[in-house]
Amino acid sequence: MQNLIELLEHKNLVWHGYNHKTKPDAISSGYAELDEKLCGGFAKSSVIELISETAIGELRLLIPSINQTEGLVVFIAPPGRVNGQTLRKNNFDINKVIIVQTNNTQESLWAAEQCLQSGCCHSVCMWISSELAIHQIKRLKLACKKGDSRQFVIRRKKAESITLPFDLSLSIEPDFLGLNIKINKFVGGHLTKHFNLDMSHLWPNLAIQTNRQNIIQFPTTKVS
C-alpha cells in the first residue's frame, strides 16, 4: 500500500491538499518566492502561458530559468531585436541562442513545435498575439514531451473564451519592486491570489524603493 502511494506520488497522480511538495520534475525559477508557489519552479517539459504587457519584466521573470541550460534557447517572434549584450550579462551562452522571426502565428507555432520536439532545445519563448486553439497547445505539449523541452507562450491578453490546456498560466502586472503575479491555472497545484514577487535583487536598476502603505514606521522616541 505504502509502495503504491509512493509510486502514484512519484508519477504526480496524487494531490496533497495539506502541504506543498516539490514536484519531481520542477526546476527552480531563480526566485525563491515563485518556487514556493509553483511547488519547486517551472516543470521541465511543460507549456507555460504568461499573460503580460510588454516591457514590464516578463522576460526578466524567465531569464534565470532559461539561462542555466545546456541546450538551445529559441526566441520566436520577439517584439524587437533581442539584445545579445543583455543575454551575455545574464550568463547566456550566446552561441546557443537562436532567434526565429516569423510572418504569422502558423509559422510561429510550426517553428516552436519543430524546436521543442528536436530534443536539442531547452526552452522556447514565443510571443503570440492572436487567438490560439486547444489542439495547437496540445501539439506543443506533445512536442515538449518528445523533446524534453519547455515552452513559454508570452502574450498580452487572453484572446479566447475557452480555457486552453496550458500546464501553467500566469498573469503578471507591474509592481514597484518587481511583478504582481496571479496564477490562473496550475495543473496539480494550488491557485493563489495575487502575490508580489521581489525582483530587485536581480534587477536593482528596475525597482522603485517606496514606502509601502501597509507599513507604519516605528516611531522614534526621544530619550531625555
Partner: peptide, 25 residues
C-alpha cells in the same frame, strides 16, 4: 534525446521560413 541535431534543426527551420529569418546573435 530527440531525432535531430541543432544544425539539422536550423536547416529545417531555414528551409521553410527562409535563411534570414533564423539567426543567431
Amino acid at each position: 534525446k530527440g531525432e535531430i541535431t541543432p544544425k539539422a534543426l536550423i536547416a529545417k527551420l531555414q528551409a521553410k521560413l527562409g535563411e534570414e529569418q533564423v539567426t543567431g546573435i
